[in-house]
Design a protein around this nucleic acid. Structure first.
Length: 868
RNA sequence: GGGCGGUUAGCUCAGCUGGUCAGAGCGCCUCGCUUACACCGAGGAUGUCGGGGGUUCGAGUCCCUCACCGCCCACCA
């Protein structure tokens, strides 16, 4: 860029009185992209974050936007700190979610996956992905996320699939993955088994029926209570508590299952609660998890009377076979009623498991599935969190939540009856009952050389997600990227997937790489809808981040989200986004003021005045504070710190103090220019990780450095706090001056003095002499030594400022404020005196606290004296 | 059934190990289109920190209890 180019750009800047985010963002993003900042550089200690991969089917929601902002803020700061940064980016194949999308598409074409077959279906999914899979990627770009887009991953990539198969086979060889006929959560909606973590409890209104089961001996009956009468068709026993005196004599006897006639053994088990219902429990090992356990314990027969299609099976017998479970319930109840076997029925409210995926009621049933025994894997994952190799932020309560879950971990059902996903690397030879588990498809049966049949099931999506931090880097190959960027530094996510994903990544990471997958886990807040409900598409409570970007700008959204979020769940507030927008605009205009008034200098700051030293000192403190806050994942405070440092200190105070010098045409403004440019550079740098677009755009207007046009702010070095610029004396002086200015302005306002009018005043506050010109200027006073009647007295740090009678000064109304101040001081004095008169306080409180109270009292006393 | 979190200005939220911690932004009121910005500036009002009890010289800040609200975990039919 030539000097004349710059001149004309500055000229154009004169006209741009507003920050136009839409216009700036696309242009700035293009510059970042072109210059290759998204890819890791060649130097520096590595710093990496693996993004929680969004679903390919996904659209950017507020959670993505918040987490994307958090990660990008970390990534950008560390990039500026000279680290060799990689933000591992990609998408998840999201088994069920994606399959459902494509099924819908097929349905709209009047087709179905059954009609076209598995192979063609999968081809359609890939096609779908080619067409729509980049949507969410582009949306992350609009956020300003500086991820390594050039090295994007997908959990169904060939290399990734190899890693998945490798892990499956290895765990199988170790005996941790096995096939079993076991009770699973069957989701009739997706027609697949799902894991415990994908089940959610919903409160349901049901009926609790009491049903009489006649005793085989003919002597009376036993009454059991159930909410699912239709499952009685699969009953194989009745259980009572061994200590329940009502039933002890019946243990070992038999009852007759009504409607069916099967003989049911009456067994004893501690599980049964004598207090509940009738104290007798029908046992249906095929359709209830508890009954299943009891059944296995007692060697009971397991009958499957409800099939995977949700209909009654042949085993249920006539006339129920073929009915849906609901129909069967109605039929069973009606027949029982006819036979007079229902002795009671009452409404019953209880929790019922539902599929998180389809929303359908879970049908517990026994199914042949693949499981992963997690106990052994959990050990190291517990250890690394206990010894601090993996740290949660905030630690409380997530560390405990994580540990509690791992310490009570249960087997994981990893097979899914879907078509889209990682198909199990398992083959069967039916004739010789061989099962082959191998990374590479075997040609034929090793025993009989016969044809093999591949297991049609795919793996739970979370199985492949669990490998994300290392499989994305090429594992199991020992790639350069793996060597450089694994383990990653931080994992950032909301709490809802701590078990589903975070814990499993730690387990798999430890098992297969021997290292933790990440050192820090940042658990951020969940953004709720403004009314406090969950933000969800189905509820219609979602707020589209892209619409927020359109309306307020990406920087505004980023600022707002960070300001909103803490460790607590928070309601979305568009006002916070608006605050971010105002901040971007203010930043833009403050920068214009500086850039358009300053001389083109290229020098270190040269403080000339106390306020110069003050702002330089304050900037160092802000630098240290912001750096520390971001590094400790305290984003809301980091962002508020930036806000108040920039708006409060730089704009409201410093820039106003400096204006007379800045606008004086005759004076040499080079020293001031150097200071102003330094301060501007510093604030832009500190704000860049949070508001990358506006800061980058402004940066491009800065004068050349070392004769060269500026490069990108995104790669500018992050400032090291410079303690030599800390100036406590200057800070005390200027802080005092600001306090005095505020007090005088308030008084003027009360007096009705016109804003622009300069009025005569006397300064009688020893400590403020050095900043008298500053106060005079900012508070529009003309200090004199002349006597005369004071129209008003204003208490200021260390003394008083007397406003002299002058035109527009209404002495009478001044009295009011003075009185108010006097009352305030008197109240404080009374309070302090009372405290100090309390012997116990003086005796027991720490000396410094007592002394501080004495100092306060003295100070108030002096102020009060000076008002008289 | 366990466990966790919340209840602070009209709204959304900060307040670490108890002693200027009663705050911020928005909103509201008054004044100002002053040569960066009206997406602005100057000034102002507003809270017995959910209720009750306790510990302490001193408590939004610790303990107990009650009341709502929310979340997580859990195999009581």
């Amino acid at each position: 860029m030539t000097a004349t180019d710059r001149a004309s750009r500055l000229e154009a800047l004169q006209e741009r009185t507003r920050y136009e985010s839409a216009e700036v963002e696309s242009r700035v993003f293009e510059r970042w992209d072109q210059s290759g900042i998204f890819a890791p550089g060649d130097e520096g200690d590595e710093y990496s974050i693996a993004i929680p991969p969004p679903n390919v089917t996904g659209a950017l929601h507020m959670g993505h936007a918040l987490n994307g902002t958090i990660q990008d803020t970390l990534i950008r700061m560390h990039r500026m700190q000279g680290r060799r940064v990689k933000w591992i980016f990609g998408t998840d194949h999201a088994g069920i979610a994606t399959q459902v999308q494509v099924e819908k598409l097929l349905a709209s074409e009047g087709s179905s996956k059954q009609e076209i077959g598995r192979e063609a279906f999968n081809e359609r999914v890939w096609e779908w992905r080619r067409e729509y899979g980049s949507t969410i990627v582009e949306q992350f770009k609009r956020l300003g996320a500086s991820a390594d887009y050039g090295d994007e991953r997908f959990t169904m990539d060939d290399a990734y699939a190899k890693a998945v198969a490798h892990v499956f086979v290895a765990l199988h060889e170790k005996g941790l993955i096995y096939r079993d006929n076991y009770m699973v959560n069957w989701d009739p909606g997706t027609r697949s088994a799902i894991s415990d973590l994908e089940v959610e409890q919903r409160v349901m209104e049901d009926h609790l029926y009491e049903i009489d089961y006649p005793l085989a001996s003919g002597g009376g009956s036993m009454t059991i209570a159930t909410v699912r009468p239709e499952t009685m068709l699969g009953d194989t026993a009745i259980a009572v508590n061994p200590h329940d005196e009502r039933y002890t004599r019946l243990i070992g006897e038999e009852a007759i299952l009504p409607l069916v006639g099967r003989r049911l053994k009456i067994i004893a088990d501690d599980y049964v609660d004598p207090e509940f219902g009738t104290g007798a429990l029908k046992i249906t090992p095929g359709h209830d998890p508890n009954d299943f356990e009891i059944g296995r314990k007692h060697g009971l027969e397991e009958l499957t009377v409800i099939g995977e299609d949700g209909r009654m099976t042949e085993a249920a017998g006539e006339p129920w076979a073929g009915m849906t479970a609901d129909e069967a319930r109605t039929a069973v109840v009606s027949q029982l009623r006819d036979e007079g076997l229902i002795s009671a029925e009452r409404p019953y409210t209880h929790d019922v498991p539902h599929s998180h995926r389809s929303g359908m009621r879970i049908e517990p049933l026994i199914s042949l599935q693949w499981f992963c025994n997690m106990g052994e894997l959990a050990g190291p994952a517990i250890e690394v969190v206990q010894d601090g190799r993996v740290r949660f932020h905030p630690e409380r309560p997530w560390k405990k939540v994580y540990l509690d879950w791992l310490e009570n971990i249960r087997p994981w059902c990893v097979s899914r009856q879907l078509w889209w996903g990682h198909q199990l690397p398992v083959w069967y030879c039916d004739p010789c009952e061989q099962t082959i588990v191998a990374e590479v498809a075997p040609e034929s049966c090793p025993k009989c050389d016969g044809e093999l049949r591949r297991d049609p099931d795919v793996l739970d999506t979370w199985f492949s997600s669990a490998l994300w931090p290392f499989a994305t880097l090429g594992w199991p190959e020992q790639t350069e990227a793996l060597e450089a960027f694994y383990p990653t530094n931080v994992l950032s996510t909301a709490r809802d997937i701590i078990f589903l994903w975070v814990a499993r990544m730690v387990m798999m990471g430890m098992e297969f790489t021997g290292q933790v997958p990440f050192a820090d886990v940042n658990i951020h807040s969940v953004i709720q809808a403004p009314d406090g409900r969950r933000m969800s598409k189905s509820l219609g409570t979602g707020i589209d981040p892209l619409e927020q970007i359109d309306a307020h700008g990406a920087d505004a959204l980023r600022f707002g989200l960070l300001a909103m979020s803490s460790s607590q769940d928070v309601r979305f507030s568009e006002e916070k986004i608006k605050q971010g927008q105002d901040l971007a605009n203010k930043l833009w205009n403050a920068s214009r003021l500086i850039l358009l008034r300053v001389e083109d200098v290229d020098a270190a700051p040269m403080p000339e005045t106390v306020e110069d030293r003050w702002i330089l000192s304050r900037m160092e403190r802000t630098t240290a504070r912001v750096t520390e806050l971001i590094a400790s994942y305290d984003f809301s405070h980091a962002v508020l710190e930036l806000y108040s440092a920039f708006w409060g200190e730089l704009c409201d105070s410093y820039l106003e103090m400096v204006k007379p010098r800045l606008y004086s045409e005759d004076a040499d403004r080079s020293a001031l220019s150097a200071t102003l440019l330094h301060v501007l550079e510093r604030i832009l740098t500190l704000m860049h990780p949070v508001m990358p677009f506006a800061t980058e755009e402004i940066w491009s207007f800065l004068p050349p450095r070392d004769g060269e046009p500026r490069g990108l702010l995104a790669t500018e070095p992050w400032p090291e706090p410079d303690s030599s610029r800390i100036d406590q004396a200057a800070e005390a002086l200027v802080d005092g001056a600001i306090e005095a200015i505020t007090a005088v302005r308030a008084q003027r306002d009360d007096l009705g003095v016109p804003v622009g009018a300069r009025i005569p005043a006397r300064l009688d506050a020893g400590g403020l002499d050095a900043v008298a010109p500053l106060i005079a200027d900012m508070a529009r006073l003309e200090f004199t030594d002349e006597g005369g009647e004071a129209a008003a007295r204003v208490a200021v740090p260390g003394g008083v400022i007397e406003l002299m009678a002058a035109e527009g000064v209404d002495a009478a109304s001044a009295q009011e404020r003075l009185e108010a101040r006097r009352r305030e001081l008197e109240a404080e004095i009374t309070r302090a005196e009372g405290k100090l008169a309390n012997k116990k306080f003086v005796e027991r409180a720490p000396d410094e606290v007592v002394q501080a109270e004495r100092d306060k009292l003295a100070d108030y006393q002096r102020q009060l004296d000076q008002l008289d």
